[in-house]
Amino acid sequence: MAQIDTGTWVLVADSEKALFLENVADAENPHLVVTREEHQDNPSDREQSANRPGRMQDTGVGQRSALDDTDWHELAKERFASQLADILYKKAHRGEFEKIVIAASPQVLGALRDELHQEVTKRIVGEVDKTLTNHPLDKIEKIVKEDLEAA
């Protein structure tokens, strides 16, 4: 059973917002405070992409095929996970935290796992696969504590 000990960090993230939190109380009654916030402006794919998909010449005479447009919105989400992983690596390397819990949507959690450096992964004491970025801090404390106790 994982706990949020004093000094444990909690990263709460979705594809556009991340909260870096620290428990300043004990594991029994965690009290999380925001130490850093990251935001990404990520408009919908329709707002970021070209007017129509490109075309390419096919093998037959006069045949052309449509090409899928790049999903810029999805690409930005993946880049945001990479940026978060980079921030965590730098902070872990400087010894700013010893333990961390990552609370993120399943998609972001998966993207983060792919990007996290070993220096960070060895400090992970728990994961919560839920989107909590728009919850108040007291709800985040309760949900993370309950999920870690249930694991």
Rank of each mutant, 00 (worst) to 15 (best):
D5T: 01
N29K: 10
A25Q: 02
T8G: 04
E16I: 05
T8K: 01
S49N: 13
T6W: 02
P30C: 00
A13P: 07
V24D: 02
D26V: 08
D5Q: 11
L19M: 09
D26H: 09
A27E: 10
E28S: 06
L11R: 03
E37K: 14
V12K: 12
E38F: 15
R52H: 11
N29R: 09
H31W: 04
V10T: 13
E16G: 13
S49M: 10
R36Q: 14
V10A: 12
D14C: 12
A27N: 00
A18Q: 03
Q48M: 15
E22Q: 13
L19W: 12
E38R: 13
L21C: 01
D45Y: 00
H39V: 11
V33P: 00
S49K: 15
V12C: 14
T8V: 00
V10Y: 13
L19D: 05
S44P: 06
D14P: 05
V33E: 14
S44D: 13
S49G: 06
Q48S: 08
A13D: 08
E38P: 08
T35N: 11
T6H: 12
Q48P: 06
N29E: 04
E38K: 14
T35V: 14
A27Y: 01
L32K: 02
V24H: 07
L21V: 02
G7C: 05
R36T: 04
D41G: 10
S49R: 15
H39T: 15
V34Y: 01
L32F: 10
S49I: 04
A13N: 11
D26I: 04
N29S: 07
L19A: 02
D45F: 01
T35M: 12
